[in-house]
Lab assay of single mutants.
Amino acid sequence: MTGIVKWFNADKGFGFITPDDGSKDVFVHFSAIQNDGYKSLDEGQKVSFTIESGAKGPAAGNVTSL
């Protein structure tokens, strides 16, 4: 699925993605970002991701920028 990064705190390594389908915002951890180098996201960035079952509920996985 796709969405827009609502916010991401690079110091803490997590944030939230707002899915394009209008569903509830999804937690994203830096370890789910699939790019080389520094793993961070920018507010407003368009991303593709999967929904994984995290310890505290749904979380984004396999996050790639579009």
Rank of each mutant, 00 (worst) to 15 (best):
M1G: 07
M1L: 12
M1K: 11
M1S: 08
T2F: 07
T2L: 09
T2A: 05
T2E: 06
G3V: 01
G3I: 01
I4P: 01
I4F: 11
I4A: 06
I4G: 03
V5C: 05
V5W: 01
V5L: 04
K6P: 01
K6N: 06
K6C: 11
W7Q: 03
W7R: 04
N9Q: 06
A10P: 13
A10D: 08
D11R: 14
D11G: 12
D11V: 15
K12A: 09
G13V: 01
F14P: 00
F14E: 03
F14M: 06
G15M: 02
G15P: 00
G15T: 00
G15A: 02
G15C: 01
G15V: 02
G15S: 01
F16Q: 04
F16N: 02
F16E: 03
I17C: 01
T18Y: 07
T18A: 11
T18E: 08
T18H: 08
T18Q: 11
P19R: 04
P19G: 03
P19N: 04
P19V: 05
D20A: 08
D20W: 06
D20K: 05
D21Q: 06
D21N: 11
D21L: 06
G22R: 06
G22F: 06
G22V: 03
G22M: 07
S23H: 07
S23D: 07
S23W: 05
S23Y: 06
S23I: 06
K24D: 12
K24W: 07
K24M: 11
K24Y: 09
D25M: 06
D25V: 05
D25K: 04
D25S: 06
V26R: 02
V26D: 00
V26N: 01
V28E: 00
V28G: 00
V28Q: 00
V28D: 00
V28W: 02
H29F: 08
H29T: 04
H29D: 04
H29A: 04
H29G: 03
F30A: 11
F30P: 02
S31I: 05
A32T: 07
A32K: 09
I33Q: 03
I33K: 02
I33D: 03
Q34P: 04
Q34F: 09
Q34G: 08
Q34R: 09
Q34S: 12
Q34N: 13
Q34K: 13
N35W: 11
N35I: 14
N35M: 15
N35D: 14
N35S: 14
D36I: 10
D36A: 13
D36Y: 11
D36E: 14
G37R: 09
G37Y: 10
G37F: 08
Y38W: 15
Y38R: 12
Y38F: 14
Y38E: 10
Y38I: 12
Y38D: 09
Y38H: 12
K39I: 07
K39A: 08
K39C: 11
K39D: 05
K39H: 09
K39P: 10
K39Q: 10
K39R: 11
S40C: 15
S40A: 11
S40D: 06
S40G: 11
S40P: 06
S40H: 15
S40M: 12
L41T: 02
L41H: 01
L41Q: 01
L41A: 02
L41E: 01
L41G: 01
D42F: 15
D42L: 15
D42Q: 14
D42E: 15
D42N: 14
D42P: 09
D42V: 15
E43R: 15
E43F: 12
E43H: 14
G44C: 09
G44N: 06
G44R: 05
G44E: 03
G44I: 02
G44Q: 04
G44D: 04
G44K: 05
Q45V: 10
Q45T: 10
Q45Y: 05
Q45R: 06
Q45F: 05
K46H: 13
K46M: 09
V47H: 01
V47T: 02
V47C: 04
S48V: 11
S48G: 09
S48E: 09
S48W: 14
S48K: 12
S48Q: 12
F49L: 04
F49T: 01
F49N: 00
T50K: 07
T50N: 09
T50E: 09
T50V: 12
T50S: 11
T50M: 09
I51A: 04
I51M: 12
I51C: 07
I51F: 08
E52I: 14
E52V: 15
E52K: 11
E52A: 10
S53P: 15
S53Y: 15
S53D: 13
S53N: 14
S53L: 15
G54K: 09
G54R: 10
A55W: 12
A55F: 13
A55M: 12
K56A: 11
K56Q: 12
K56W: 15
K56P: 08
G57T: 05
G57E: 04
G57S: 08
P58D: 10
P58I: 13
P58M: 11
P58G: 06
P58V: 13
P58L: 12
A59Y: 15
A59H: 15
A59G: 06
A59P: 02
A59T: 15
A59K: 15
A59Q: 15
A59F: 15
A60K: 02
A60Y: 02
A60D: 01
A60S: 03
G61I: 15
G61F: 13
G61Q: 14
N62G: 08
N62D: 06
N62P: 02
N62W: 11
N62Y: 10
V63N: 01
V63Q: 01
V63W: 00
V63I: 05
T64K: 14
T64W: 08
T64Y: 10
T64I: 14
S65M: 15
S65K: 15
S65F: 14
S65D: 10
L66F: 08
